[in-house]
Nucleic acid binder design. Structure first.
Lengths: 79, 79
DNA sequence: CGTGTAAGGAATTCTGACACG
DNA sequence: CGTGTAAGGAATTCTGACACG
């Protein structure tokens, strides 16, 4: 499901990561949650998968910048 | 997806119904959202479909009690 | 660089009740 | 019966910053 419907609390629970980590990945332009009028972030299940992947990469020693480049590559290949 | 991850605000947006209506369907035992420690309701996409169905039935003139019975029938048939 | 935390505020959700019909 | 609403409180989320390293 690519619908952005869950708040950061659910994402945190599903990924096991802190809200701080999830917000940071957004700050580094790795994920793009939507916002409600009240500025609350809304994520999709796809975002959850992306976040897990990002965290795995970080654990493997990559920087967010490298992950960003890796995402771009992935994207170009999928075209 | 049967994972209970979205809050009532998202459900309201997806169904076009008010939070009052959604909570009432739970009161009548037609849907069963989960709860966080803080008592916040969490719904799944399946719940969203159920809610739409319930509202359609209500629009068709059925009572919540009849809908409950109809759900039970549906359930027994699926076995 | 990636993440933790305390701080204050704003948005979200909760419950129980009164209202209409 | 099914739904709207005002009320007060509690839980959730937000931002910007300081900290460590």
């Amino acid at each position: 499901m690519e619908k952005k419907v869950m708040n950061i609390g659910s994402v945190s629970e599903l990924t096991g990561l802190s809200e701080r980590q999830i917000r940071y990945y957004e700050e580094r332009k790795l994920i793009f949650p939507e916002r409600t009028r009240g500025k609350t972030r809304k994520y999709s299940f796809e975002d959850v998968e992306k976040i897990k992947e990002i965290h795995q990469k970080l654990t493997d020693g990559f920087t967010t910048f490298e992950i960003k480049q890796w995402q771009a590559k992935k994207w170009s290949k999928s075209i």
